[in-house]
């Protein structure tokens, strides 16, 4: 083996080398994919790009709004389930478990079709979508938060207790910061799942990404390029969510 090629092989063994090898692999797969997809009917769907992009935008809006509302509701729910007095705890548990054990589509239908009968007022599809997705997000995020709170070892709380710190201070300065860091992997998984759940409001007529693609397909009939776009849209979105959460995750190492 010549000196130069030996040096290249050696450099590929390093962490950086492996990283570049991996990137090269991904690039090759993407090129191969693009090559395989080159003959699809792109011309037919090109004119619809604005419509599709708007659909994707609505999916993001639904996801962000429901995650925001859901997170705001999830915190008190999780706290009630972990720290609440018996009655409150049971109520929070019942609420969370009920929502989690009902198919999401069912909840969406209830909010859209049944809630108007109960409250005697009109609920449009967009309101129903936001409402039901927020309820779903609240229940699932509450469980992520609860798992995070439970992940903090008992010894941490005891160590703080022995210094005379109040329960509130212990929660704010010892439990919560560690819980937030520990919940990052579960949080990523849950946010990705919630993003994909937004596609279900397709069923009540909200023109989000899945429905936009379907509507275009019904008029143009170009399923191959359209469903490829659909997959790519969700993939890129979920990937972005993953990266975004990791970016907020402060680098630190755990002991114990």
């Amino acid at each position: 083996m010549s000196g130069a090629s030996f040096a290249i092989v050696q450099s590929l063994r390093t962490e950086r080398g492996k990283e570049w090898l991996w990137r090269l692999g991904v690039l090759l797969v993407v090129i191969a994919g693009a090559y395989a997809a080159r003959d699809l009917e792109w011309g037919k769907v090109a004119a619809s790009w604005q419509f599709l992009l708007k659909g994707l935008g609505r999916s993001w809006l639904l996801a962000l709004a429901s995650i925001f509302v859901g997170a705001v509701a999830a915190f008190p729910l999780a706290l009630a389930r972990v720290y609440g007095p018996t009655g409150v705890r049971h109520a929070a548990t019942a609420l969370i478990e009920t929502v989690r054990s009902i198919p999401e589509l069912m909840i969406i239908f209830w909010v859209y079709f049944t809630l108007p009968l109960v409250i005697g007022a009109q609920v449009d599809s967009w309101e129903a979508a936001l409402g039901s997705l927020s309820v779903i997000a609240a229940a699932y995020l509450a469980e992520v938060i609860r798992a995070g709170l439970y992940s903090v070892p008992r010894g941490q709380i005891e160590a703080a207790e022995t210094t005379g710190m109040s329960r509130l201070h212990i929660f704010l300065h010892v439990v919560l910061p560690q819980a937030l860091r520990n919940m990052v992997p579960a949080l990523i998984a849950q946010l990705v799942a919630l993003f994909k759940t937004t596609s279900l409001v397709y069923a009540i007529g909200v023109m989000e990404f899945l429905r936009s693609v379907t509507v275009i397909n019904n008029t143009l009939f170009a399923p191959y390029p359209l469903y490829l776009i659909l997959a790519l849209g969700y993939f890129v979105s979920c990937f972005a969510i993953t990266r975004l959460v990791r970016w907020f995750d402060p680098k630190y190492q755990l002991v114990d």
Binding site: P153, G155, Q156, E158, A159, A160, T162, T163, G164, M165, S166, H169, H173, V174, P177, Q178, R181, Y252, Q253, L254, V255, D256
Partner: peptide
């Protein structure tokens, strides 16, 4: 109190481990 497994706060630097309780309590 000192524990067998130390129970230091992993998310805080050494100095912050020491000053948390004096400040808060």
């Amino acid at each position: 109190m000192v524990f067998q497994h130390f129970n230091l706060y992993p998310h805080l630097r050494v100095l912050d481990n020491l000053i948390l309780a004096p400040i808060k309590v």
